[in-house]
Design a protein around this nucleic acid. Sequence first.
DNA 1: TAAATAACTTACCTTTAGTTAGTATTGTCA
DNA 2: TGACAATACTAACTAAAGGTAAGTTATTTA
Lengths: 105, 105
Amino acid sequence: MDDSLCPKFESAFELLGKKWTGLIIKVLLTGPKRFKDISDVIPAMSDRMLSERCKELELSGVVIRHVYPETPVRIEYELTEKGKDLFKVMEEVGKWAEKWGSTCP
Amino acid sequence: MDDSLCPKFESAFELLGKKWTGLIIKVLLTGPKRFKDISDVIPAMSDRMLSERCKELELSGVVIRHVYPETPVRIEYELTEKGKDLFKVMEEVGKWAEKWGSTCP
DNA sequence: TAAATAACTTACCTTTAGTTAGTATTGTCA
DNA sequence: TGACAATACTAACTAAAGGTAAGTTATTTA
């Protein structure tokens, strides 16, 4: 049988298999958020990382960055359709996490 | 509303949010595999990484390491119930990857 | 006897992530 | 007015993770 991995699957995990990415997406599934809002929910993550991940996620088409030219300027990050489509993935991760609590067997 | 992240969810992503982990689990979902078999399916990953990840996955109760004292000794890695339970997650990642091909919006 | 295979380990170096501090812009407080 | 605070970053530096290549042990095959 063909056990070789699908390249699409591999590239999905280039995204999800990076530190913080999953958590950022999870947070954005609750609606568009400002930089500060995301960083408040994930305090262990540094601003530098959040900034870097947001750029990567924008590049890969998972989030859009909205600039509202108010005073002071407001910037929001929102999931695209592609991003919102990760809902099911996150839901299953949530169920698994709930069931197994993680760490101990 | 409470947007704070569940610690269980966070710790799930300490596992999945690491390079190679997702791919190794995906491979093991097709059945128990030897070290060499896994490394053949994921050629971009080094032996050092596979060795390190296998230990981590064993520690977190996702895989069991079977030693068959034949000559030469045969070692197989198999998913535990906890590991097999990630099937749904992987299935959803697969669907998403299939739909969005990854990278371009 | 030489070379090969499985399952790792070690040493070394590069890339990624973490920490701390700083910047530009605007707003608020005394 | 002047000091301080908030937002959304960036820069500089250190620490940790990952990559590369070679070595190890035991056994088997040519």
